[in-house]
Write a protein that binds this DNA or RNA. Structure first.
Length: 812
RNA sequence: GCCCGGGUGGCGAAAUCGGCAGACGCAAAGGACUUAAAAUCCUUUUUCCGGCAACGGGAGUGCGGGUUCAAUUCCCGCCCCGGGCACCA
């Protein structure tokens, strides 16, 4: 056969057109095949796909196609995280509505998606900005409202002046906005809607045990830190001379006899009562100075209130201070300071010359002497000078003292979490309207379910001023109260867009259902997600909200699974020529450019080949050119040898052995560790052998090689794989064939190559039949002509043989 | 400060269970084909020493120790890089 040059444009265009109307990737519920749900994180429709997206989808697509070929019923969907701030900013800049802008972006990105031929079931496409989708956000909200999981409270909230909206705690990164790392977040007091994620804090934490093994350890660690469960006790001190309790949270009650002052957060309600005018001013200054600053950079500062608190154990009275390092949002907002046994308290008390009193000694040492302590002793030890608990190991004292507090009514063992309820109110337009109505008489009235969806009005002027643009839409705001009929106001806040992405993967299972968010039976079939693939940047926000939503949906009886995702894979970033890609640097590698210049197959294979999928990949033009050359090499071999007629099979055995070894390697990798870089390398090795042995390859062997090459390439380079399949005269889509089997015997080498070492150094090699006994290997090694001289005049101390691998002779 | 990753040629990397370090690719150099170039094909390419050469010898996976017949791989200590958390009482 005459060789043909590899023309990616012609090949990809041809199959693109041929596949246009085919629905190869439809997932069905009624089938005897085992199911496999593979999911990639849905993109924000910014307008263009870049190489980072391509990497994410290429990993998922390789897996999805492999699973299809292994006979699974694969669900592989895609959608759009279509609400969000950039649409509003674009609207202000371009005089277009957020909706127009978003829909156009989706259309453009979908076109690129199609061009890359990712194996999605597009019939299940979900776009979160459509009423058909967001009405179920509203529905879930109402369900949560009924159950007390959604509530409203006035709260100090994180406010980003640039976004002109509220941020969730999770969206504040080192005191700055997660989108604007140069903008300090301010604190404002606003009436806000919250979801009670803390109701599930314990379960979110304990269920991580089930995710162990399937999720990356570091994601679990990040979530554990975020939830921040801490066991301790709440203890009531009393304001001296009164019965007013002041409750503190501590993890170390055993140190309470060493408490030398009590410290309130500056915002603590009691502090406001106790402080004089000057003190109040100090407190306010502390709060303001804290906003948006890295906590580690702020020096500890305090102010004595002039009042005292009584220690319920010792009866001692200690001064009450306020201090900037005590947080209102954690525990009770008040602490007992035990400088001898806590580093922070030590630093604070030294600064203000407050007494330091050691009450815990090291197990094998003496109690520290004061004055003279240089640092706090924070470990457990033995309690001393601690009343009836003196002499106890401090861990025992800790437990017993908490019980004592409970028996005597001034405290109890308690657990505190770092995670806080999820603030979801946003003073923004392009999001899901929160379905409640404010009535002067009836207060907060949920929108009746049969009136959903509360439609987001179109043609709204976007001002970007910080008040919801919806407030300026009278038709939207002015409604009759559903309960009493009186004129009322509709809620104008919209929901955090993380709501949208918290359950979208359920909607894929039943994307067109207009009566329910989804049919529970379909969820029962498809869930849990067998493999979720996305960036590690979502380790906390999206992945913890999703878990929360799943538990909430289970508790309202919609689903049975406790967790959404069995296995999670976090792929590494793509950087461009050594630097992080960003719009402002103008070095974003766009998917359309890649498809045009190199073809979709090359782009896909490049991102898979450059590094194992969990690692960072550096985009390099030369790297892509290398892959392009390789695909050309494959194609030219195929076109030269398809339909080859030759009886000369002198190289057949060698080539077929390599072929079956390659199939074995790739199959193994798909089943275990997904190191597609080495999979592709092994195909390259195979092709190198093909080039070397081409002359002496029989027609039959060539046919087998070409067929299996097409099948092996199908998950990575579907266009070229199809073209090869076609060249080989085969019918139908290559990616719907069975994954190739390999012959264990054929893949075996004839003889084992045995390495011979003398004192651990490689000195010679020999071949021996598989299974040659160890004694025989050693005997043969000793006779080897390179080895023999090295043994002369030496004493053989030991000889080790590893069957089929190695002999090591130790001499003296 | 604490918790995870990671450190291997000029570069991206490989070595899956303690057994040949550097597969595969990039870049570079040389050759073949060509009027020429591109493309393609072939060869060389960790490093040092000896040799015209085939070849031979030594060193080598961040650094220092240890275990072992044998360590990129396991253990202890340290250095550097990346990420996460960080007054959470």
């Amino acid at each position: 056969m005459p060789e043909k040059p590899y023309d990616h444009r012609q090949i990809e265009l041809k199959w693109f057109e041929s596949w246009q109307d085919a629905d190869f990737y439809k997932a069905e519920e009624n089938t005897a095949k085992p199911k496999f749900y593979v999911l990639e994180m849905l993109p924000y429709p910014s307008g263009t796909l870049h190489i980072g997206h391509i990497r994410n989808y290429s990993i998922g697509d390789a897996l999805a196609r492999y699973k299809w070929m292994r006979g699974f019923n694969v669900l592989h969907p895609m959608g759009w995280d279509a609400f969000g701030l950039p649409a509003e900013n674009a609207a202000i800049a371009n005089k277009r509505t957020p909706r127009e802008w978003t829909l156009q972006n989706i259309a453009a990105m979908k076109k690129t998606h199609r061009r890359f031929a990712f194996s999605y079931d597009w019939d299940r496409e979900v776009s979160t900005c459509e009423p058909e989708y967001y009405r179920w956000n509203q529905w879930f909200f109402l369900k949560m409202l009924e159950r007390g999981l959604a509530y409203r409270k006035k709260a100090l909230v994180n406010w980003c002046p640039k976004c002109a909206t509220v941020l969730a705690n999770e969206q504040v990164v080192e005191g700055c906005c997660w989108r604007h790392d140069d903008t300090a977040v301010e604190q404002r007091a606003l009436e806000q809607w919250f979801l009670k994620i803390t109701a599930y804090a314990d379960e979110l934490l304990s269920d991580m045990a089930r995710l162990e093994g399937g999720w990356p350890e570091r994601v679990l660690t990040m979530q554990r830190n975020w939830i921040g469960r801490s066991e301790g006790a709440e203890i009531d001190f009393t304001l001296a001379g009164t019965d007013t309790p002041i409750r503190v949270f501590t993890t170390r009650v055993d140190t309470i006899y060493g408490a030398t002052c009590l410290i309130l957060a500056p915002e603590h309600p009691l502090a406001q009562q106790l402080l004089d005018a000057e003190g109040k001013a100090r407190a306010k200054a502390m709060v303001d100075a804290r906003a948006g600053r890295d906590p580690g950079d702020i020096d500890k500062e305090g102010h004595f209130t002039g009042h005292y608190a009584r220690n319920p154990y010792s009866g001692e009275e200690v001064p009450i201070w306020i201090a900037n390092f005590v947080l209102m949002g954690y525990g009770t907002g008040a602490i007992m300071a035990v400088p001898a046994h806590d580093e922070r308290d030590f630093e604070f008390c030294r600064k203000y010359a407050i007494a330091v009193r050691p009450v815990i000694r090291p197990v094998d040492g003496a109690l520290a002497v004061e004055p003279g302590m240089k640092e706090a002793f924070t470990e457990y030890g033995v309690a001393e000078n601690t009343g009836q608990w003196s002499g106890l190991p401090s861990e025992d004292a800790r437990r017993q003292m908490a019980e004592y507090a409970e028996q005597n009514g001034f405290g109890k063992a308690a657990i505190t979490f770092r995670i806080k309820d999820w603030g979801i109110s946003r003073q923004r337009y392009w999001g899901t309207p929160i379905p409640v109505i404010h009535c002067a008489k009836c207060d907060i009235v949920p929108v009746p379910e049969n009136q959903l969806p509360v439609l987001l009005p179109l043609n709204v002027e976007i001002t970007g001023t910080g008040r919801s643009p919806l407030e300026n839409v009278p038709d939207f705001v002015n409604v009759a109260c559903p309960q009493c009929g009186a004129p009322a106001r509709r809620e104008t806040d919209t929901m955090d867009t993380f709501i949208d992405s918290s359950w979208y993967f359920y909607r894929y299972c039943d994307a067109r259902n207009s009566d329910m968010p989804f049919d529970p039976a379909k969820i029962a079939y498809w869930f849990e997600i067998d493999q979720y693939i996305g960036g590690v940047e979502h380790a906390i926000l999206h992945l913890i909200y999703s878990r929360f939503f799943t538990k909430m949906m289970r508790d309202i009886g919609l689903i049975k699974n406790n967790e959404p995702t069995r296995r999670l894979f976090t792929q590494g970033m793509v950087i461009a020529e050594g630097t992080k890609m960003s719009k402002s640097k103008g070095n974003v590698v766009g998917a359309d450019m890649l498809a045009e210049k190199f073809g979709a197959d090359t782009a896909r294979m490049f991102v898979l080949f450059a590094a194992p999928p969990e690692k960072e990949v550096d985009w390099r033009v030369e790297g892509a050119e290398g892959i392009y050359r390789f695909l050309g090499r494959v194609y030219r071999f195929v076109t030269r040898n398809a339909g080859k007629i030759s009886e000369n099979g002198a190289s057949d055995r060698k080539v077929l052995r390599k072929l079956h070894q390659t199939v074995r390697k790739i199959t193994d990798d798909f089943e275990t560790r997904w190191h597609f870089n080495t999979c592709i390398a092994s195909i390259m090795e195979l092709v190198n052998v093909l080039y070397a042995e081409e002359e002496n390859l029989s027609g039959a062997a060539a046919a087998e090689v070409i067929e299996k090459l097409a099948l092996m390439l199908a998950p990575f380079a579907p266009y070229l794989a199809q073209e090869i399949w076609d060249e080989a005269g085969k019918q139908g889509p290559v990616f719907r064939q069975c994954w190739p089997a390999f012959d264990r015997e054929l893949a075996k080498e004839d003889e084992a190559e045995i390495v011979i070492q003398v004192n651990g150094k490689l000195r010679a090699r020999m071949s021996a039949p598989f299974g040659t006994p160890q004694e025989e290997l050693i005997a043969r090694a000793k006779e080897d002509e390179k080895v023999k001289p090295l043994l002369e005049g030496k004493q053989i101390v030991k000889a080790i043989a590893v069957p089929d691998k190695l002999v090591n002779i130790v001499v003296k």
